[in-house]
């Protein structure tokens, strides 16, 4: 039995168990429902507005963009908060005490975050198809493209989120700060309104990060080709999308393993104890 392969299998089992656990957790379920409901409300109010110069609904453009945002959000914030919380509560240390435990842990986390991202996207997509029958014309090919972009988006953002999470000690601070940063990125990345509405230099910044390209990719997958006219350069820019997202994938996969290994190596009971004391002070 190959021990590393065995640990990968255990990691997948762990991801599945934890996904099932989160499905039966009222707090998790209500969080997912409320946040998805918020997106559905946005779509509902935009359903009668049309994109200027076309007969296509504004909501039809916003929905794919939101799918792209969800992929980035789950990868970045999800991985970040998971790592900080689980360093503090000892999950990580427990993994370290097992043979091949860290490998199993990391695989489990990737599996869980992927399942959670897909879960919330399926809910949003289902609601979108009910409200916006137009989207159905994208067909099976379009949905498969959505799945592919989601997976690339997660691979591009998960390692980054994990690295940032491993560099900070305070879960609340990390989550708050990263919400601000990612929220800012979303605001300039043409998710809720076309990117042409923001200043040129902000467009340039947005195009350096994955959020914009994930939104663009999702629009390319689900919208008719005529809608590309509204994008920068009047095109879906598939080559650029693949290049930028691949660059983030490569950067993440190069950076994350050594940084996470270093973090794992330094993990010990007394460090965790110190974090726990600090957490107790925050609560008390």
């Amino acid at each position: 039995m190959n021990a590393a392969l065995h640990a990968v299998k255990l990691g997948l089992a762990r991801g599945w168990i934890e996904f099932k656990n989160s499905l039966t957790n009222p707090q998790d379920v209500s969080f997912t429902i409320i946040s998805t409901a918020a997106f559905v409300v946005v779509i509902y109010f935009q359903r009668d507005a049309t994109v200027p110069g076309t007969t296509f609904t504004l909501a039809g453009v916003t929905l794919p963009s939101m799918l792209g945002m969800l992929a980035a959000f789950n990868g970045l914030i999800g991985a970040m908060s998971m790592i900080t919380v689980e360093r503090e509560d000892g999950t990580l240390l427990r993994a370290k005490a097992l043979p091949q435990g860290m490998l199993g842990y990391m695989v489990g986390r990737i599996a869980l975050l992927t399942l959670q991202a897909l879960g919330s996207m399926v809910i949003l997509l289902a609601a979108g198809l009910l409200l916006l029958p137009d989207l159905a014309q994208a067909g099976l090919g379009g949905l498969l493209l959505v799945l592919a972009i989601t997976l690339i988006g997660l691979v591009a953002t998960l390692p980054l989120g994990a690295v940032v999470g491993s560099l900070f000690n305070n879960p609340q601070a990390v989550t708050g700060l990263s919400m601000l940063v990612v929220g800012g990125l979303v605001a300039i990345s043409g998710i809720f309104y076309p990117i042409s509405a923001v200043a040129g230099w902000l467009q340039a910044i947005a195009q350096a990060f994955p959020v914009y390209w994930l939104g663009l990719g999702m629009r390319a997958a689900l919208l008719p080709d005529s809608m590309a006219a509204a994008e920068i350069g009047g095109s879906w820019r598939p080559i650029e999308t693949i290049l930028v997202l691949s660059a983030w994938v490569v950067a993440g996969l190069l950076l994350a393993p050594p940084i996470l290994r270093r973090m794992a190596r330094r993990e010990s009971g007394s460090l965790m104890e110190a974090r726990r004391e600090r957490a107790m002070q925050r609560v008390g």
């Binding site: 065995h6 640990a7 934890e18 965790m272």
Partner: peptide
């Protein structure tokens, strides 16, 4: 074997479920 002073990790797992899962890491050895 390392006995850690845990705090609140794996809170949603069930006792036998966690022990069974962790024990499987030792199978290859």
């Amino acid at each position: 074997g390392v006995v850690l002073q845990s705090w609140r990790d794996h809170g949603r797992w069930r006792v036998h479920q966690l022990l069974h899962h962790l024990s499987r890491y030792y199978e290859p050895y």
